[in-house]
């Protein structure tokens, strides 16, 4: 996949209803919450009346490193007297999972994983394993990264962006799944019986299903 520039994300582009906390979030969280919101909209699960036991697992390489750098800029002057509590609140990569959980009423487990390799599939793998272990039956699995900060000397060649898929062990009859995921004993991931090598390939395969290509 060719990397482009990540556009700035406006609340209105993703959320129809007011979302006061959105503007307070760091860029990493806005990106992640937006992708979670879009995935739930696509699945028809964005509206809710009672909280749901749905988990969220995200794979990231840099996490909230941009926010870390921004936050520490506020610490350096005056011996930390003006350190920003607002920025510090987002210096953990799982904070956006908490934002998404509150926004969409998701009470399942939420965690951030980082593993070697750039496939971005570790969140899918983790969700499938968790389902196999009967830890939950419904979850969002995704990737979220802003890319390498300009002044940071280690560029892992991560494409900036976020994407989530909704994975259900026993899909409700009202849902229209793109297909089925399977984790092999060798930890390979198959979508509709075709091996998937990275997250973008999974998204492409879903889009292909959608358009009947």
């Amino acid at each position: 996949m060719v990397s482009g520039k990540l556009p700035s994300i406006s609340r209105k582009a993703v959320f129809e209803t007011p979302y006061l906390r959105f503007s307070r979030m760091d860029e990493f969280s806005r990106l992640g919450v937006s992708a979670v919101g879009l995935a739930l909209q696509d699945a028809g699960l964005d509206e809710w009346t009672s909280k749901r036991e749905v988990g969220i697992v995200v794979n990231t390489v840099y996490g909230c490193l941009h926010t870390d750098l921004d936050y520490f800029e506020t610490v350096t002057p005056e011996n930390g007297a003006f350190a920003s509590p607002a920025l510090f609140s987002y210096t953990l990569p799982n904070c956006f999972l908490g934002e998404a959980a509150a926004r969409f009423g998701l009470t399942g487990p939420g965690y951030v994983i980082t593993e070697q390799g750039n496939s971005g599939l570790s969140s899918i793998r983790a969700v499938l394993e968790d389902m196999d272990c009967e830890d939950f039956e419904s979850a969002l699995a995704g990737i979220c990264d802003l890319g390498c900060p300009p002044e940071f000397p280690i560029d892992a060649n991560i494409i900036p962006g976020a994407a989530f898929v909704v994975v259900e062990k026993k899909p409700d009859m009202g849902l229209k799944p793109y297909g089925s995921l399977h984790l092999s004993p060798a930890q390979e991931i198959f979508f509709n019986k075709t091996r998937i090598l990275d997250f973008s390939a999974l998204i492409k395969a879903c889009v292909k299903q959608l358009w009947g290509l």
Partner: peptide, 25 residues
Amino acid sequence: PGTNISTACASSAIAVAKGAALIAA
């Protein structure tokens, strides 16, 4: 290769939970 789990102050408890779940299953 290892995997890091980052979930604030519950990180390592969740790692133990995941490890136990994998073995149990």
